Computed example of a mutant assay.
Amino acid sequence: MATDITLRHYTGAQAPDLRPMLLEVYTEVYADAARTDPFASPERFAEGLDSWSARPGWTCVVGYDGDQPVGYAYGAPLPEGSRWWGGLLTDVPADVTAETGTRTYALSELMVRTPWRKTGTARRLHSALLSPRREERATLLVDQSHPKVHALYESWGWQTLGDLRPRLPDAPLFHAMLLPLPQASDY
């Protein structure tokens, strides 16, 4: 598959127009998981997408091969008092999970359609989403039943903070991970 992927950046204002394509790609990428895991259902994802894309500061990067979407990454800053850390099962100092609204960017989704996997596209989407961020760090959750995904993120510099189970129906056990981001003063 071609690796000449064009990356396009979007904001929450463009989310309604992107929504059908984001759902279509998700449904394709997670088709097998959705057959047996209620947490992976397209309906649950659509609810999460609507919630995330309505958040202040939501950004999305979509990769295209010609006019064909090959994958995307999106997220948003965690607000002050965020519930993100509410399902953390590992004891960590309170200051680690204290959110200010500008401290942590949460990478909510990163996915690449099968024909474009192992082409570097995931890394490019990841970097394009996070490189313009001004927060001090990013966070994401990796399903613990996917050790290869966890290892991939570790190879990109992510560190495991601990175990987290979101307070959502049918949620799996995740690794909560953190990645330091360049400070705004470094630019």
Rank of each mutant, 00 (worst) to 15 (best):
T121R: 09
P115L: 07
V112A: 04
G71C: 09
R123A: 06
E80I: 12
V112S: 00
S145K: 13
E80Q: 15
D67W: 03
A138G: 03
A122R: 01
L140T: 02
V142N: 01
S127C: 04
K118M: 06
T100N: 03
T114W: 04
C60Q: 03
L78C: 08
G81E: 11
G71E: 02
D95H: 15
L110K: 02
D143Q: 08
R103H: 13
E109Q: 11
P132V: 07
H126M: 05
Y105C: 01
D95K: 10
H146N: 11
L107A: 10
K118L: 12
G75R: 03
K118Y: 08
V112H: 00
R103Q: 06
L129H: 07
R133M: 15
H126R: 05
D91V: 14
L129T: 10
G86K: 08
S127L: 14
L129C: 11
L125T: 05
A122I: 05
P115S: 02
G101Y: 10
S82K: 05
V92D: 04
L107Y: 00
D143V: 04
G86C: 07
P56A: 04
Y105R: 04
G101V: 01
R123N: 02
G81R: 06
A76R: 08
L107R: 02
G87C: 10
Q144A: 09
P115R: 06
W85V: 01
R83W: 12
T59C: 12
T100K: 09
T139K: 03
T59I: 04
R124W: 12
W85C: 12
R113D: 02
V92S: 03
W58H: 15
T104H: 03
E99P: 03
S131T: 14
P77I: 01
E136C: 11
A94G: 07
P147K: 13
P79E: 11
A94Q: 13
R113N: 02
G75W: 07
Q144W: 01
C60A: 08
G101A: 08
V70P: 00
E80L: 09
D143G: 11
